[in-house]
């Protein structure tokens, strides 16, 4: 029972299907981004929506710990203040110092992470250097602010939150100083 034409037609169809599935793998990338955007998961380097209830809960202290790391690039990066006690609902501003110790201009992107992880959604960053890529000339030092409010809905058992930033190098980013502050991620 050999019908070469039918076999070849079947092979063509299946090959197209396989090629389509290869494309589908890449289609998962924008699809995943869209899902994260819609559900608000992974909203790490975008400003949070302003807090609705701005009442400061003075009855409660939460200690914030600030941590800073640089991964794969020769930057010195540290918080000005390492710990701080804050009330939920209070507007807080902290600063970080970063110095490019290397001998070439580099663009970096800071990625925040939280300990414990589920505290993340309650730390609402209104202003952050992590919203933009940062260009540092060789030897340049910058002081960069982070402004955040702890959401009043923070679970009662969370008394200590670590906010940790890691700078990664953005390879292939524009090194023109004019765009230094405007490079959007």
């Amino acid at each position: 029972m050999i019908n070469k034409r039918a076999n070849n037609r079947m092979m063509t169809r299946l090959s197209i299907f396989a090629a389509g599935m290869f494309g589908f793998g890449f289609l998962l990338v924008p699809f995943y981004e869209k899902i994260c955007e819609v559900t608000g998961v992974n909203n790490l380097i975008k400003p949070a929506v302003a807090v609705v209830n701005t009442q400061v809960d003075v009855s409660r202290w939460v200690s914030m710990e600030f941590d800073a790391n640089a991964h794969g690039l020769n930057w010195e990066f540290k918080p000005v203040q390492r710990t701080m006690k804050v009330h939920p609902g209070e507007m807080v501003q902290v600063e970080y110092d970063v110095t490019n110790k290397g001998d070439r201009a580099t663009v970096g992107q800071a990625i925040p992470s939280y300990g414990p992880n589920h505290a993340g959604p309650f730390v609402r960053k209104l202003e952050c250097f992590c919203f933009k890529q940062q260009l540092l000339q060789a030897g340049e030092t910058k002081r960069m602010p982070v402004q955040f409010v702890l959401d009043g809905g923070l679970p009662a058992d969370l008394n200590t939150i670590t906010l940790s930033y890691t700078f990664f190098e953005v390879q292939g980013a524009s090194l023109k100083p004019t765009k230094a502050d405007g490079v959007n991620s």
Partner: peptide, 11 residues
């Protein structure tokens, strides 16, 4: 196999 091996190749 035809459906998922290409997805792994993509990854």
């Amino acid at each position: 196999l035809v459906a998922v091996m290409p997805v792994l190749a993509g990854a």
